[in-house]
Design a protein around this nucleic acid. Sequence first.
DNA 1: GCGGATCAC
DNA 2: TATGGTGATCCGC
Length: 854
Amino acid sequence: MDNTKEKNDDYKDDLLLRMGLNDNKAGMEGLDKEKINKIIMEATKGSRFYGNELKKEKQVNQRIKNMMQQKAQITSQQLRKAQLQVDRFAMDLEQSRDLNSTIVHIDMDAFYAAVEMRDNPELKNKPIAVGSMSMLTTSNYHARKFGVRAAMPGFIAKRLCPQLIIVPPNFDKYQAVSKEVKEILADYDPNFMAMSLDEAYLNITEHLQERQNWPEDKRRYFIKTRNSIENDKPREEVSKLSNKIMGQKTPLLILDVIDPFKLPFSFMKSKQNKPYFSGISILDGLMPFFLILNSNFSRIEQKTTLTASAGIAPNTMLAKVCSDKNKPNGQYQIHPNRQAVMDFIKDLPIRKISGIGQVTEKMLKALGIITCTELYQQRALLSLLFSETSWHYFLHVSLGLGSTHLERDGERKSMSVERTFSEISKAEEQYSLCQELCSELAQDLQKKGLKGRTVTIKLKNVNFEVKTRASTVSSVVSTAEEIFAIAKELLRTEVDADFPHPLRLRLMGVRISSFANEEDKKHQQRSIIGFLQARNQALAATECILEKTDEDQFTKPLKMSHESFFDKKRSEMKWNHQDTFKCETVSKPSLHTSQPFQVLKKKMDENLETSKNSDNCQIFTCPVCFRAQESISLEVFNRHVDACLGGPSVSEDHAFSSEVNREENAHHSLSVFEKQDSEAHQKNTEVTSVDCADLIETVGNLSKAESIDALSNKHSKEECHSLPKCFHQSSSYTVSLENEDGISLSRQESSQPSSHGMITDQALVCPVCNLDQKTSDLSLFNMHVDVCLNKGIIQELRKDKVNPVNQPKQCSTSTGRAQKTVTRTRRPGLITKHSRSKKTKPDNSRHTLDLFFK
DNA sequence: GCGGATCAC
DNA sequence: TATGGTGATCCGC
């Protein structure tokens, strides 16, 4: 026992020494792993959080159990077949291996904590963490000896290390420092990819090539330190120093930047067997990497007095792993040859790879897979147990393959705000909180000029069980009021579902997604009168964009087989995007009926039934001419609307014949449109006529509610290209129905982006939930109806399931390993887009086994 | 399109 | 006393 302890201490000391943290008596401090775990368990056991963690663990175990059952059913024949298939694929991958890029992953060491220590000397040599008693985002290396880690609650950290100093975060400051670092990185790769405030990928392939032609002078990068300024002999200083360090006459050009105060420290570390500041690499002919990387460090350190670690490898996946290898203030390089890559990968634990997290690790471990070698050995089995996306990814990893170029920022797909708080169970408070979140979100959206169609709320109860509820509306929203109108209903559904028990919440979030793409935005801004000219511009712009697009992107799919999995994923993403683009701007649109309107139609039909039964005369307002239509049935009213739609102009104040049938309407409208079109825009006649015919024909086959929806959708989605001009002249329409019960169905849609603010004096009572909406804003009211209708569907659907309220609920909390930054995330080494090949390729037997993921 | 789950930072 | 916030993706429905 004592022996073991001694050994541990030895090991620990060695570790601390290598970490460069063995200052004074620090090495005697800290805790061993066992003790750390014990303290953590004591602090966490019995908590609601822990309860939920256990529950999640059970679920994962069940998944593993299912997987093992699947595995047991696999025959050796199946396995052989899979082996052949996988090996064919692996061979292709091998042939397309690209070792020509040099990717660097830079990772600042304990960034936030380092910044705080730099700015407050009192914190130096003390265990500190950045965060709060509830949650820490970073700890310094001193604190890590006690087991204090990012993503750990501060109060537990305090138990591990009572003398721990917790500093509240100062993101503005970190941002500023990060900016300084990024300025340096840009010198080496102007297109570097920042992953967060403290992490970035650089592709220095080009830089290295250019650099070879640089004169020695340019490769040196002298910074005047206090010392060198006093002496005014920087070169001499540097020369002396470097000679001292290397113990030999080393050419000065190895040092791009020299900070006399930093180098000795670095050198000492290299003596600890860290291949980091190795003069050896120069002799090995690895000078370029050495040069670049050390200059980066030095420059970063010089400018910010903070240290970074780096990984250098032929692809992002490997570079990322490398940067962690000699942390802190160290670097590691994988030489660009296959053997070096495979040697590195060989014993690498899969958990080290970005994209393989706690759960995947556990599942793979159940299959006896811990290292990358084992991952490769089990490739056939994995192809039978996991989805195509997954096993492709695993295969890439096990071959040491990754992305060889850095993807530029894609478009944002969602934006959200969420907040944790001490329990809130009063519904009123929950609503007002929701409203606040919506306001915040709206502000963020406004800053970025974004509008979206899907609003999602996220709720976490006091037992840490999470659920999300989403609703997609037919047109984009962005204001606080609009978002809240939707979020409120989603929340209401959940509140009602648990009634009379209150929702006991500890977190609430609001997210918006399904953003309008660039084309949508352009068209939203377009005036109705000028829509045809604008269309020409859009087409021209399309051509322009397509021309401007990097030729590479278009040749890529042709040489796809030579790309890595990651590159392929990216290409697919680009091409998917282009497909969409083409589809929405060039090809003929397909007509979909949005959910709200489907239900609206249903409601209308129900009302129709009622009216038929009661045999009462109804008053309908035509959505096109806005005139009240007294009819005995909706059918008559339908004919009116159809006629109206086919008429020359909405604004024209004349009645339409209800006798006109739909076909005639189609022709009528077409001819009118053609006429107007040819008068105003002769060049466009051909195209628009075709589109128009298509539209009218489709509309003719629908009932009126659908017709309106079709038009509405077409209006917004297809940017009005194909609409008869008469329709465009109306900026809004209203559908309203009333029956003898006083149920009114009223709906107004606007083609203008800012329908918000449209005021009515009527009391707006939602036809679905029957509640007075207490708003005179039609736009908000519409939103409410949309959501209410959606809610109806959801509730309808839920009836079929086992009552989820009384069931143990599904849950999930994000307990990510590291929590350093609060920024955009991207994973260069991971799947970036849902696999399209899955859909295009015919299903094969293997896919049936993907079920296990359930 | 929705909801749960996983992952990264 | 006390276990985060933002964004992305995948999978099964």
